[in-house]
Amino acid sequence: MSAAGSSSVHASAVRVGDHAVLIRGPSGSGKSRLAFGLIVAGRTGQIPDAELIGDDRVFLERRDGRLWVRPAPELAGMIEVRGLGIRRCPNAPEAVIGLIVDLAADDASRLPEAAAMQIRIEGVELPRVPVAAEFDPLPLVVAALTTIDAVGA
């Protein structure tokens, strides 16, 4: 059961440092694979410490002008690893969303327009990375988390 003011979405989320990366996309697009890739990247020091929040289904809630994500209770601490099945791993109880990743995004491009790099969800403006279906999302997300946009610099 969801708390008042929260909504369930088909997505995965990983806490990276102090903020969450919310990973959206159609079934089979690689949400779980990207989530696990971020966890491994955190363990190897490529990005700040990373921990699963939820895989497959998470709850979003707007609080104090920010968008929070938390796991579906029945799926907390579980992630699908293709070829191994459902696995258990440590998970964070919630985090403020700092980045949206849209897998198999129709508007993904080599040099995306500024408008494609932002999205408004439940009234909160958030940075976004649209990823084409045939592209490996992990390097893009790591770059988004570890570099600064040079446009307008």
Rank of each mutant, 00 (worst) to 15 (best):
R87N: 08
L22G: 00
L126Y: 10
C89Y: 00
L75S: 02
R88Y: 04
A144H: 07
R33I: 10
S7Q: 14
V40E: 15
R15V: 08
V21M: 00
K31S: 01
I121P: 01
L140N: 00
P71A: 12
L22A: 04
T147R: 09
H10N: 08
A76W: 07
R110V: 13
L34E: 07
C89A: 10
T147Q: 12
E74D: 12
W68F: 10
T146K: 09
I47C: 09
V129N: 00
S27Y: 03
R63K: 14
L60S: 05
G28I: 10
V14A: 10
D106T: 04
G54E: 00
A153V: 08
G54D: 05
G54A: 05
A133M: 10
V101Y: 09
G5S: 00
R120T: 15
R43T: 05
V40R: 12
S32H: 06
P48W: 13
R62L: 00
L126V: 01
N91V: 03
I119A: 13
D55M: 05
E94H: 12
T146V: 03
P26C: 13
F135M: 12
A108Y: 02
R128T: 11
G42A: 09
I97Q: 08
S32C: 01
V141A: 12
R63C: 11
F36L: 14
F36Q: 03
L99F: 02
V124I: 11
L126H: 04
A41I: 13
G98I: 11
R57I: 00
A104E: 11
R70A: 14
E80Y: 14
D149Y: 02
P26N: 14
L138K: 05
R57N: 02
A132H: 09
F135Y: 06
S32D: 03
A13L: 11
I39N: 03
A143Q: 12
I100V: 15
P130Q: 10
P130T: 12
G85C: 09
D18R: 08
E51Y: 00
P90S: 14
G30D: 13
V69T: 13
G37C: 06
V101P: 02
A11E: 11
T147K: 00
L84T: 04
F135D: 12
I119C: 12
L140S: 08
A144V: 12
V124Y: 04
A108R: 01
S2K: 13
T44G: 01
S8W: 09
A133R: 14
V69E: 14
R33A: 15
A108E: 07
I148A: 14
V131S: 06
I53F: 09
D106K: 09
R110Y: 06
T44D: 11
E80G: 04
R15S: 07
A76G: 04
A41K: 02
P139G: 07
L84N: 06
P26F: 09
R120Y: 01
L99E: 02
K31R: 14
A108F: 01
N91R: 10
V124S: 06
M1A: 14
C89K: 00
S2N: 07
P73F: 11
A144E: 09
I86K: 02
G98N: 10
P93W: 03
G17S: 03
A132Q: 08
I39C: 11
F59S: 11
G98K: 04
A116C: 13
I86Q: 05
R128E: 11
I86V: 13
E122Y: 07
P71M: 15
